[in-house]
């Protein structure tokens, strides 16, 4: 039974929360520019890492807000909790991942 640090309400028991899947799935700006295979990839294909995983959780029995959780799928440690509009915490990323994330963010700004 996890204990999760809701960014708004503080440390609360897992029973107050629901996990709603992988975080940072970027919805395509123009869905119609994608073929069916690409669109299906957006809809359904999720990563399933052994180790660090980024997830969306909702504090469903509390403030009802969604937020992001960086969780280790092996040890079940929660490495970070951050707001839904914030990027992956830099301290958890390798240099490559950080560079990659920066690229994604700048392309979002352009779009």
């Amino acid at each position: 039974m996890y204990e999760i640090d809701c960014p708004w309400c503080g440390l609360r028991d897992e029973s107050e929360f629901h996990c709603t899947g992988e975080a940072h799935i970027i919805r395509p700006e123009d869905p119609y520019a994608l073929d069916d295979a690409q669109w299906t990839d957006y809809l359904h294909h999720r990563s399933n890492p052994k180790g660090l995983h980024f997830e969306q959780w909702q504090h469903s029995s509390g403030c009802r807000k969604w937020f992001n959780v960086a969780r280790d799928t092996v040890t079940y440690e929660i490495k970070a909790v951050y707001k839904v509009d914030e990027p992956k915490p830099a301290f958890l990323l390798t240099d490559d991942q950080s560079a990659n994330q920066a690229t994604v963010e700048s392309s979002e700004v352009k779009a």
Binding site: T20, R27, Q58, S60, R64, W66
Partner: peptide, 13 residues
């Protein structure tokens, strides 16, 4: 309600 809130909070803030 959760579906609507999810879209409001994450896609259409």
């Amino acid at each position: 309600l959760n579906h609507l809130e999810l879209w409001l909070q994450t896609e259409w803030p």
